[in-house]
Each structure stands twice: as C-alpha cells, then as structure tokens.
Design a protein around this nucleic acid. Structure first.
Lengths: 236, 236
DNA sequence: AGAAAATCAAGAGCACTGCTCTCGTTTTAG
DNA sequence: CTAAAACGAGAGCAGTGCTCTTGATTTTCT
C-alpha cells in the first residue's frame, strides 16, 4: 500500500539527502574555508555514518566540485539578473553593476569566492561540469561588449581611434578566430575586455586576500572608481 | 680540544638544520602544493623523528610563513634586479620588465606563487615578518611611478590632461595622505598604479589558475600586450 | 673543573582525517 | 515472491598535526 508517488521513494530521498549533504558542506565551507571541510564532520552533523556519505559523493574532491559548480552558478545568476535590470544602452552602468555584484557576492561568501578564484587544489583538473557555470559571468561581460560594438556600428563610430597600443598580428588573429566569441567583437575591444575581466577579479582578490591592507582603506570607493575608469576605456 | 669556532657548535648546527628543514619543505611545496606539505614527510626525508621538527618550527603554519617570506623575497629580489638593468628613463620598458619578471617567476614556481597570491589559509593573519618582503614588488612599481612623475615635472607636463575619470574627493584625499606613499606621487597617478598592480596579478593568477583555458592560448603575447597598453596609461 | 640548566632527538600516544571493506537490512525490479 | 541492487553502520587502515615524557648531549655558571 501507499504506492510511492513517482520514481520510487528511494530515488527521492536520495536526491534530498544528496542536496542536504551539499548544503551542510557549504555551511561548513562558509565557516572555515575549504581546508576545514571534513566529510566526517558533515556526516556527524547529519547523524549518519561517515562511510554513508560516500554513497552520495564518492570523494571529498567530488563534493568540492559540486560546491564549485554551485558557487559559479550563484554569482553567475546574480550577475545576469543585476545586468538585466539595467538600461540596455547604459553601458557604463551595466559594467559597474556587474563588478559591484561580483564584489558584493565575494564579500558575502568569501570562502566560496576563494574556492573558485583562489589557488586550485594542487592537481585539480576542472571537470567539464564546472566550465559551463564558470562561463556565466564572463558571458555577461561579453554580451555587454557585443552590445557596445553594435551601438558603435549603428553610430558609424569606429571606436578606438583614441590612442591605444596596436594589437600584435598574432594576437589579433587569435582573438578574431576564437570559436566562442566569434566575429561579433572586434579583437581590439576583446583584448581590452579580457584584461578588464582579469583586472576586476584581481581587485577583488587583492582586497579579499589582504593585499590592500594598509594600502587603501576605502575600498568601496576605489573599486567603483577603477571600474568606472575601466568602463570608459571599454566603451570608447 | 677543537674549540668551536664561534657561538657554539650547537647554535651553528641549529641554524643549518633550520635552513635544511625549510629547504626540503620548499621542495615538497614545489612538488605538491601547500596542501601536500607534511611535517612528517619532511622529517622522514631528513631521517629525523617528526617530533624533532617542532624544535625548529613550532607549527606547520610557522613553517609555511617562513616559506611565504622566502617567496616574497625571491620575487622581490628578482624584480629589483631586473628593474635595475633597465634604462632609468625608459618607463615602458621598466614596467614591462617588472611584469615579465613576476610572471616568469610565477611560471617557475607556481605553488610558491599560489602560496602568496592564492587564497590564504582560512584564519591566516599575515605576521609582521611577511609584510616587509611583500612590499618589495609594489615598492619597485611605486618607485617607477615616482620617476615618471619626476620626469613630468621636469617636462612641465601636467600629465593626465588626457581623458581620465575624475577622482572622487574622498579617494583623492586618502591617496594624497597615505603614510607610505607620501606626496611624491599624485593621487590620480597613484589610483591608476594601484589598479595596474592588481591587474597584473589578476592576469597572472587567471593564467596560472586556469581561468584563461580555452579563452586565449598565446598568453605570452596577450600578457605583453596588456602590460604595454597599461604602461601607456601609466606614463601618460 | 664540576654541577646545574638548557637544549635536544626519539618514541609513544591522542584526536583527527579520507577512504575501503564487510555485513546485515531495506528497497527495487523481474 | 524472489533475485538483485542500493543502502547504513561499523571496523579498520594509513596518514596527519601536535603533545608529552624520557634519556642523552651541550652549554653555562660557579
């Protein structure tokens, strides 16, 4: 009697427990960083034998990978949503919003940020599952650049007639023929965009990892200002 | 007989062993990253009891701190030396040289780079011993900026009459009154310099930690180009 | 020079970790 | 209803950082 609703009761409780393990693991991660994440401690908190965890996550590294995917998706979703609330053609605001959103998330979840943007565990090879979620934030940036370029073309403006370092031929060819970013973004702009991407995370990492200690105190203002001045470089 | 040369034989062998422990620890770090550094393994390789290590380094964290100090000093010394071989007034070459030197060292010793520029261990509070060595690379950059500024003043050039985002007042005041960087570098230039500092390490970290995988392949060229175009922004 | 004090290496031991294997139970599938 | 698959719990292994005790060696003080 009491026939299980669908798919079997076992499958459902398994899905729930899988999620529950991941969630308490995430809370442990948030408390003490990835180094302090212990499968046994998670099992203890869940009232189960430590060996039982392995039915759901075959290794600690796989659990960490699941947390990595979640972290990428969290920032990614936030950035996408924040960007969607901006006026499409207010490019500076959009760029600033993306930066502020990433930074706010990093402050909220510093250990999750460190997990994906800090040093990877030594021999860590990013599994395929992580690369798609990792694409979301840079994807939003690229979309912004594509919109900038589209507006330029509508304008008849060539962009970048302002003094910029000329792209070496090899680099230009490579950026032009990139399979993901295709021909929608001119290589000159793409090069600046990639540098801006790295700069943004460089700023946040330096801040979070303490390299700005005793250097700048008002990091809000510094970040905003830097992002703004990078934006003007991107937009024209 | 055979009176020990000076300071006692015990003190000397202690200094030697302290160094030897640190060196094999560094070699283990280089092989497997900081997570794989085990005091017991180091002791085993040195043929001593694991408990004996604690006479020299009271904890694993203190050993790691010693390695951190060494790493900072290594990059710092290399950058200083490379910069010293540049023509003083070839600012672009100096900036590019600093960047290339840091990047080359990072490639040589990725785990040491990750140790100091990756995520710090969770509750890690940088001891005072580390902050002076950590200052050397940014110190070389600041010296470069000061030289740029001095050349400007000799020129009568104000610099930065080119279109730059205006500094917010609060940020300008803070940068002007910084106790370390004093009044020798104008705040406008300092703001760009700090961002360039973070950008440089953002680029190297992204490269080393795999975030540029499938994005750019010729990272040598991309890094050089980005550093060059940042240099033109710094110099005028 | 001899005694007291400091320093040292080694070993045992504690609490913890990731992970494996086995065993009896429960759920699913045929 | 039965065979197969999935499961939870427990014991166990090899490894970790770190502490404590013990006995030997070196330094320092008298």
């Amino acid at each position: 009697m009491n026939k299980p609703s669908a798919g079997g009761v076992r499958a459902r409780v398994r899905a729930e427990l899988t999620e529950e393990i991941k969630n308490t693991a995430r809370s442990h991660l948030a408390s003490g960083g990835s180094a302090a994440l212990s499968l046994r401690a998670v099992a203890r908190e869940l009232g189960m034998a430590s060996s039982a965890i392995y039915r759901y996550y075959p290794s600690r590294e796989i659990l960490l990978t699941a947390l990595i995917v979640d972290a990428y998706n969290t920032v990614g979703a936030r950035v996408e949503e924040a960007d969607a609330h901006c006026e499409r053609d207010n490019f500076e605001e959009r760029w600033l919003t993306i930066g502020r959103t990433v930074r706010a998330w990093a402050h909220e979840s510093p250990h999750e940020y460190a997990l994906i943007f800090g040093s990877p565990v030594p021999g860590y090879a990013a599994p395929d599952d992580t690369i798609t979620p990792a694409t979301r934030v840079p994807g939003a940036m690229l979309q912004l650049l594509a919109d900038v370029e589209a507006a330029r073309e509508g304008n008849g403006s060539t962009g970048h007639d302002s003094p910029t370092t000329p792209l070496p031929d090899g680099l230009r060819d490579e950026l032009e023929s990139n399979e993901y970013i295709g021909g929608t973004i001119p290589p000159q702009l793409l090069a600046v965009g990639l540098a801006a991407w790295a700069e943004m995370f460089g700023l946040i990492s330096f801040e979070l990892f303490g390299h700005f200690h005793n250097v700048i105190s008002d990091l809000d203002e510094f970040f905003d200002h830097t992002m703004r001045s990078t934006a003007t470089r991107l937009i024209l």
